[in-house]
Design a binder for these strands. Structure first.
Lengths: 344, 344
DNA sequence: GGAAATTATGTAAACGTTTTCATTTTTGAT
DNA sequence: ATCAAAAATGAAAACGTTTACATAATTTCC
């Protein structure tokens, strides 16, 4: 695969019989160059197949036109959909998207952080819930940063996401309205911001409905299917069972569904289950999952819009952009059985 | 967010009292620089917080240390897992991964193709099944390319994937061994290479088992859940039903499962269903999906290994790398009912 | 102790752009 | 026709590296 040398701006200039400055101008400021020369230049560009060397451009202009998205796990469909939104507006505005999969590994985070220091990226969209490892040491050199989905509490980083507490309240109110009185909360990792915000919403909704918060009914998970499954197992060795489960995300709700069905229970006959996120698959479970939908694509779009505004020096409203959630009622929630299960 | 100017190699050189050439050498060829100066340089690097400007490096060295992965849809978990494999070895070998989501849009493909022409990437891993739009025009400038998952037929592009025909045969033989005689094939898009390879395997397996290929039982889908669902609907307006479904991927198998359950059928009691890929979610359906597992992560790793070997000019075995598939038996396949459904 | 070989360092060119500034050409007004 | 202003172009510097080559310092060997 022998590759002929790429044409440079100089080749174009020579062929068009002008200086390289004129070629550059013909490309970037066509208004500043005479009609006739512009045509000559364009012809030369076409003939040589010239494509500008992006490295030289970035070096000179000190902007790579790239944005780094740091995400804990690309294979998680929730994040994947956000990425789609990020990519859409980046592309539309002439930027490229660099995806950094961190797996929450500090070393990896630190590596990706250097992408901005080395000018590979102009800014970072964080979906990890925390500043990348190593950010503290270089605070004075921090690039433009926007947090999506998971707010970064310690810092004043612009945020785009949803009102998690409100979403959780909506979910729990839905269950209460169906008649549930004993509702379990399957949490994400205990130190996670989403876990606690959704928990706050859960507890608030219970109190607003005149119900008491039973700490026995809150179980820590880890946002994974397996975590949901295990939570059910742990719950079932106790005597006081709930009639409904509010899960901090859909993956765990799916795990709950699986565990329940494995134990021979019917959903929503015996238990109701509600999730959070509305990942694509949640409509394919048996029964289809009732959940709180996050406008993932919009979150991505809004986050990237804010990012690029920052990068391009436009005035950007500091503070959070909160997008609305939506209750999606499917088949996994229903009225509880009449009989009081606690009396068994 | 005022940002202090980044330190350059010159700052380091000045602080260490050496020339910039020595600094560069101390970094890249530490053996070529005296112990004592190396220490001075390292101290200066630490003090200034120097990080080399990657754009300048790439410009000078004509290598961006970036690989572009072109994929039709990041939010597809199948591809996401491949990306994980690609990223793992790229990172390990000091490269970054650029992800280009094409949605099979020619315009987008062409845009991403310029990434290599403009030196933003050193090579392309293609998961789209075809050369990017615009590749024909610049054939003489084509970068190193590796195809993963979907072979590119017209061209002699190195390929990493599985033996799709063999996988399909394995799936169909499994159904035949369970006693099925009328097996439907739910295909992907008709012009897709995976569709046809798997179809070939399906037909071969039937013939090997002494069964005839009934064209009525092959239905075109589109690799989506909805596509699987629709295929079932189309099939059910005919009279001659199958007892089992071999689906060209898991998504369609999930659609089939859904459609069947919606019509009140039991799987595997009334019908058996088998998929292809073993996406993470396929163990969460009701019943859990029997399928052909592709070693996704390995495919990604092998593809990136081949890619980097090419980029770095190492000798690379041309031709395909074929990784083994595995039959994963779960709950969606079983023996057909004794009664012959055709006699209804 | 001195020449030869080796090792360490510095100088400067090159990578391919963009942009400032100076210069030339064109336009328009008189 | 002349001149001023405006428009178009070119020359050259700058962006921050890496590296070939030249030179200086050190070691080795007799």
């Amino acid at each position: 695969m022998k590759v002929r040398e790429m044409a440079t701006i100089e080749d174009v200039a020579r062929m068009a019989g002008v200086s390289i400055a004129t070629v550059s101008r013909a490309i970037h400021h066509p208004g500043k160059v005479a009609e006739t020369t512009r045509k000559k230049v364009n012809a030369a560009i076409a003939k040589t197949g010239f494509t500008a060397n992006a490295m030289a451009q970035s070096l000179r202009s000190k902007s790579s036109k790239m944005i780094l998205a740091m995400v804990p796990d690309i294979s998680n469909t929730f994040f994947a959909n956000i990425l789609l939104g990020l990519e859409a507006v980046a592309t539309r505005r002439g930027y490229g998207l660099l995806i950094g999969n961190t797996e929450n590994d500090p070393q990896t985070e630190a590596t990706y952080l250097t992408y901005t220091r080395s000018n590979k990226a102009d800014g970072i969209v964080l979906m990890t819930g925390h500043l990348p490892f190593g950010a503290a040491e270089v605070r004075q050199h921090l690039p433009p940063i926007v947090a999506a989905c998971e707010e970064i509490c310690e810092e004043s980083v612009p945020f785009v996401g949803v009102d998690n507490q409100h979403g959780a309240r909506t979910a729990v109110h839905h269950l209460v309205e169906l008649g549930h009185r004993r509702i379990a909360y399957i949490s994400g990792p205990p130190n996670n911001i989403l876990s606690s915000e959704r928990r706050a919403g859960y507890e608030l909704a219970l109190r607003q409905s005149g119900l008491t918060v039973d700490p026995e009914l809150t179980l820590d998970g880890d946002f994974s299917i397996e975590g949901g499954r295990l939570a059910v197992e742990r719950l079932f060795i106790r005597d006081a069972l709930p009639t409904a489960f509010f899960c901090a995300n859909d993956d765990m709700a799916i795990g709950v569904l699986l565990a329940l069905s494995q134990r021979g229970y019917n959903v929503p006959g015996d238990f109701s289950v509600i999730g959070f996120d509305d990942i694509p698959f949640s409509s394919c479970t048996t029964p289809p999952l009732t959940t709180i939908r996050q406008p993932r694509r919009l979150i991505g779009e809004a986050a990237m819009t804010k990012m690029l505004d920052m990068v391009e020096g436009k005035p950007v409203r500091t503070g959070a952009v909160i997008l609305p959630v939506e209750l999606i009622i499917r088949g996994s929630t229903g009225a509880p059985r009449e009989i009081d299960r606690e009396s068994d």
